[in-house]
Every structure is written in structure tokens, then in C-alpha cells.
Computed example of a mutant assay.
Amino acid sequence: MTFKIVLSGVTGRIGKQVLDQALQNPTITSVIALSRRPLPDLARHAKVKVLVLDNFRDYSDNVIAELAGADGCIWCMTTTAGDPVLELEYPRAFANAIAPSLASHGKRFRYLHLSGAFVERDQKKSLWMKADARKTKGRGETQMIKVASESTHGGLWETIIARPGMVVQRTSYTGGVSMWLAGSSGSFIGSDGLALALIDAVMHGSDQLLLPAMLLRRGQELAKLQG
């Protein structure tokens, strides 16, 4: 089995960890990293291709050709601020660019959309904290779920939503204590375990909605297997 994966947000805190785990995974033979700028540190990795996009709303024919044949994508380009451009316009533009090529390759494509634990899809619900950001991210989730029902990809697109809790560095003192206090709730999750869980979901499939406790449990299981 070989796997070609597309990653966005690879310079962010979570995206960097996902990229690192993808590079260590022998089944992943090709990593397409979408970036705003060149990433010279990745030049030594034979299985990485960095695609520099000046505008994440616009995908050239050359970029689309590089994306063709991908098996999945982990979209890590997100922030807690709920920026509509990041949460809505950029992932929608990616779907518009790659979806038409899926039918010609005839294989399922899993798109994993990184979201957050307290995201709200109900746009009419009254919220007392960070309402705009949570609802904007909720609209992003709904938008990308609907892509799976569109006709452009011939029924080959699958959307997975991941809602991790607070992401911490498990090896740091603060991160370790936070995870110990939170127990199995998933309120806190190590970035390494989260990356393992995200990669596993996009490679092997999962529930459509991955909640904090589910991500924590799967990440811990995979870390044990990894040794």
C-alpha cells in the first residue's frame, strides 16, 4: 500500500507535527505540502513536494496537476479566531481545485478538516463565549461536509471533521500535568498523539466526527503501537 497525502498549515503548531509524523510513516510515499513560502528545510526529504501558493483561493493548472492522484488531505490551516477566509474560502477553493480530478483516478479521497472542541454549527444558537469564531468554524465544517454530496468528484470525496481539545506539548511539564488532570476526557491532547490520530483517520477511515476523547484515545493507542 502506498499513500499520497496533501497537507496544509504545515508551518503551524499542529501542522508541523502532522508533517513530521507523515514523514516517518513508511506507507505515506508522497507528501504535498501547501505553503505560502518556500520551505528549504524540507528539500532533503525525497517524498516531500512543497507547492508555494501566493493565494490560497487560486490553484493554477500546474498545482492541480501536482495534487492529482492524492489519496487524502489533512487541512490544518485554521486558527482559534475563526477567520472566514481561512475557515471558509481557502478550504472551499481547495475542494474546487481537486474534486474534478478524483473521478478520473477512480479512488476514494478522504479530506480531514481540523476544527475545534467547542465549534457550533447551529448559526441561530445563543453562545456566551467566542460566538462569532465558533459559528464561523461551524459553517466551515458544514461547508466541507456538503462537498461529499456534490457531483463533481463522482461520489469519491469523504469528509472527516476532527475536533480536538486543547493541544499541548505532551513532553513539557505544563502539557503533561494538563493531560494528567484532564484524564480521558480529551480536554487536553498532546500534539504528537493528535497527529497520529489524524493521519490514521485519513488513511484508514473513521467516524465522520472525531470528538476530543476519541482523538485522545486513538492517539494514545497508536503511540503505544509505535513504541
Rank of each mutant, 00 (worst) to 15 (best):
T2G: 15
T2Y: 15
K4D: 10
I5T: 15
I5Q: 13
S8R: 00
T11Y: 05
T11H: 04
G12I: 01
Q17H: 08
L19E: 02
L19C: 00
D20M: 15
Q21T: 05
A22D: 11
Q24R: 15
N25R: 10
N25E: 08
P26W: 01
I28G: 04
T29R: 04
S30T: 12
A33E: 06
R36C: 03
R36H: 14
D41S: 07
R44L: 08
R44M: 06
K47Y: 03
V48M: 09
V50L: 01
D54A: 02
Y59G: 00
D61S: 15
A65G: 14
G69W: 07
A70T: 13
G72Y: 06
C73V: 13
C76Y: 01
G82P: 02
D83V: 14
V85C: 04
L86I: 13
L86A: 14
E87T: 15
Y90M: 09
R92I: 12
F94T: 07
N96I: 12
N96E: 09
A97E: 09
I98G: 03
S101M: 02
G106I: 02
G106S: 06
K107F: 12
R108K: 07
F109M: 05
F109Q: 08
S115A: 08
S115P: 01
S115G: 06
G116T: 11
K124F: 00
W128M: 13
K130N: 15
K135W: 07
G138V: 08
G138P: 07
E141H: 10
Q143D: 14
Q143A: 15
M144D: 10
S151E: 11
T152E: 09
T152Y: 00
T159H: 04
T159A: 06
V167S: 00
V168I: 10
R170E: 15
T174H: 12
T174Q: 14
G176H: 04
V177S: 01
V177W: 09
M179Q: 06
A182G: 03
A182R: 00
G183H: 07
S185L: 02
S185W: 01
S187D: 11
F188N: 02
I189Y: 01
G190N: 03
L196T: 10
L196S: 08
L196E: 03
L198V: 08
L198K: 00
D200K: 04
A201I: 12
A201H: 13
V202A: 10
M203N: 12
H204I: 00
H204M: 04
S206C: 10
Q208M: 14
L209F: 15
L211I: 06
P212T: 07
P212E: 00
R217C: 06
R217D: 15
A223G: 00
G227H: 10
